[in-house]
Design a protein around this nucleic acid. Structure first.
Length: 676
DNA sequence: ACGTGGTGAGTTTTT
DNA sequence: CTCACCACGT
């Protein structure tokens, strides 16, 4: 989009005060933010390093920064900050280490490590085995909520109402103290620590308010309490910011996002200007009509009605299939047929679903037809065991206090050090007030540990790692030294021995290679000295999904398979949404938790991904475990404007016998269709 | 300390 | 079905 419409232009040029842009799906909100940043630099003479933009993902940040660079022609964009809240928080922590109570080599613990720490604390706290898993889940959510609401452990303890809350608060307290002892933070801390600092320390607040001349926040409906507070504290009373969001696309409330923050903004800033972007540039009118009709069933604070200049387009198809297998078969066949007919490429097609497990059936069918596909989502790069192992070695090297990393790799590969030994080591380390790694090389350890063998193993490990630590940290070219470390422990052999298949081993080794190459690249590309050090890079690595960079280079022609959540922000000419059944979309748990409105927004997001055609499918019977369960069509299908919809193979409301007959006829039709 | 068989659960996910 | 986790045996 080269030219902006008047509304968009208004949003770009309005800088007199706080601005909320209510941007509907496909209304070009990213263009508005990008152009606005360029406008601030080019026309308003604001220095790029005084402009901060916050996006939902690193990928979005990268893209936005590139687009801005093009608009302002190169060098002017240098110093511009476009990042996620977490990366911004990390930057702030790095500037305010002392005030945060951290040393400069602190680690960032990922969700897995936090869970493990919590489960250990929970275990110590007695409690019955039975529902420990549930308790763990409950407590980690509770702690995350507390952090997002900036409630410190002391306060959590003092306001606890129930016995469970009190117990959780105590564990929260222990958890937080352990993190500090490890010189580590978790993801929530990346937001909570700097925000609390801004709140409590006037000097620091003023410093940052001066640094941030103008703030732009994308996907504002996805901010949580702490993030909104951070925004408020950064912009202060001057309120020089633009927030862009769509309350109808809020699909992350389950992990703390508060779409209410949009309304909150109108209260906190009475002078707030609200601009609505309602023209959609993406979809055919029928698709938009459907989206509008569905979302109209949700209560709204801000009225918004999308419209399009495009033509009506094809009817929206709703296809009822006998089973989930037939559903997958139908989608795969239909896709191949229409692709041929319309002379489209595979990457013009997306198949969207509620849960990752639904992908499997589709995959099977696509493979059968030899259709290339790209499955996004699934296990992220960093949750892969081999990456976590290598990262743990690196983390331990930059931060010897990181007990969590120590525990992960002390026996990987096997060094014959078991839980009993570690328990004793832990007790000793605690009594001496040192980290596990430090305890390994202390002379006093031998007296506390009966087994001589274990003492030797631990001591060997400790001195060995210290040696490598020096090698890696003191070297200007550390990556070869890291490779040296891995070959020292024969990690390659370990991978080959433990991988289920030889191919699996190769993939894992490639992953490690990719990680090390990425570190090398980041070292080479780092502009200032600050970023050129290996410690900063390792810390940053935790926050960046390297796979995205890999994916970017890959623009091969493949059908896109992803969850509805993963599809947010994307668009495709032809979209299939599968599994439109009660208990799936809306999901059973959401029905139980009374959050069907969020599921409806998910439906809305799915519909609005489509540019030209939209096909919705459902199965009458779905395989769950060993047996089939019959399903009910999703309530959202009834909410569609029925005159825009073409039903195929609809379940009849007549007698079961008739139903069967029609079902049989439908199957014959389907077969005929597939053979054609 | 570590491998194996049996049992049970089974959204969404970025940082 | 399939993966993850636990208890048990070696």
């Amino acid at each position: 989009m080269n030219n902006l419409n008047p509304r968009q232009q208004e949003a770009v040029k309005y800088i007199d005060g706080p601005l909320l842009v209510l941007a509907g799906a496909g209304s070009g909100k990213t263009s508005v933010i990008t152009r606005k940043i360029a406008y601030l630099i080019n026309e308003c003479g604001i220095k790029a390093h005084k402009i901060f933009a916050v996006t939902f993902t690193n990928k979005a940040a990268k893209e936005m920064k590139e687009r801005v660079s093009r608009l302002v022609q190169g060098k002017e964009a240098k110093g511009l900050t476009v990042s996620t809240f977490h990366t911004l928080g990390l930057t702030m922590i790095r500037y305010e280490l002392d005030a945060c109570g951290l040393k400069n080599n602190f680690s960032i613990l990922d969700a897995d490590d936090c869970q493990r720490l919590l489960s250990e604390l929970l275990h110590k706290d007695n409690s019955p085995e039975a529902d420990q898993k549930q308790a763990l889940k409950w407590i980690s959510k509770k702690i995350s909520d507390w952090k997002n609401d900036l409630i410190p452990p002391v306060q959590a303890v003092s306001v606890a109402q129930t016995k469970e809350d009190l117990m959780a608060a105590h564990i929260y307290d222990a958890y937080q103290r352990h993190l500090r002892a490890y010189n580590a933070v978790d993801f929530d801390d990346l937001i909570a620590l700097p925000t609390r600092l801004l709140q409590e320390n006037q000097a620091i607040r003023e410093k940052w308010q001066d640094k941030v001349h103008y703030l732009l926040v994308d996907e504002y409906q996805d901010t949580n309490t702490a993030q909104y507070l951070m925004v408020k504290l950064l912009v202060g009373v001057r309120g020089r910011f633009t927030a862009v969001g769509d309350d109808d696309q809020s699909i992350y409330a389950w992990r703390g996002a508060r779409p209410e923050n949009m309304v909150e903004l109108t209260k906190d800033y009475p002078q707030l200007k609200v601009i609505k972007l309602e023209q959609n540039y993406r979809s055919m009118a029928r698709i938009l009509n459907a989206a509008n009709a569905v979302i109209a069933n949700n209560p709204h604070v801000f009225d918004k009605k999308l419209w399009s200049q495009h033509g009506l387009g094809d009817l929206i198809r709703v296809i009822t299939c006998p089973t989930d297998r037939d559903e997958a078969e139908y989608v795969a066949n239909d896709l191949v047929n229409t692709k041929l007919m319309n002379r489209r490429t595979f990457k013009d097609y997306a198949i969207l679903y509620r849960g990752n497990f639904q992908a499997k059936a589709i995959e099977t069918q696509l493979r059968e037809l030899q259709v290339p596909y790209k499955l996004s989502g699934g296990t992220s790069f960093y949750s892969r065991a081999e990456i976590k192992d290598v990262m743990s070695y690196l983390r331990l090297i930059i931060n010897p206090d990181d007990d969590s990393a120590f525990l992960r790799i002390i026996n990987t590969p096997k060094r014959a050090i078991g839980p009993v030994t570690l328990e004793k080591l832990g007790v000793y380390a605690q009594s001496r007030g040192v980290s596990l790694l430090t305890a390994c090389t202390e002379l006093g350890l031998a007296a506390h540990l009966g087994q001589k063998k274990a003492v030797v193993s631990l001591h060997e490990f400790g001195t060995w790692l210290e040696e490598h630590q020096r090698e890696i940290l003191d070297n200007t070219d550390p990556v070869p030294k890291i490779r040296q470390l891995l070959s020292d422990i024969a990690y390659e052999d370990y991978i080959r021995e433990t991988a289920p298949t030889p191919q699996g081993a190769e993939v894992r080794l490639e992953n490690i290679n990719f990680l090390l190459n990425s570190i090398q690249n980041m070292l080479n590309k780092a502009e200032d000295e600050e970023d050129k050090n290996i410690e900063a890079i390792i810390r940053k690595l935790v926050l960046i999904d390297l796979l995205e960079q890999q994916a970017e280079a890959d623009d091969s022609d493949r059908v896109q398979l992803m969850t509805l959540h993963a599809a947010k922000g994307l668009e495709f000419p032809h979209v299939y949404m599968i599994g439109l059944e009660e208990d799936l979309l809306p999901h059973r748990n959401s029905i139980d938790a009374d959050t069907v409105e969020e599921e409806r927004r998910l439906m809305y997001v799915g519909i609005t991904r489509a540019k030209q055609t939209l096909t919705l499918t459902l199965a009458e019977r779905r395989k769950s475990g060993a047996d089939f369960r019959s399903t009910t069509p999703s309530r959202f299908l009834e909410e569609l404007p029925q005159d825009q919809v073409e039903w195929q193979g609809r379940r009849s409301q007549k007698s079961p016998a008739e139903k069967k007959r029609i079902g049989g006829a439908h199957l014959a039709n389907l077969k005929a269709l597939l053979n054609s």
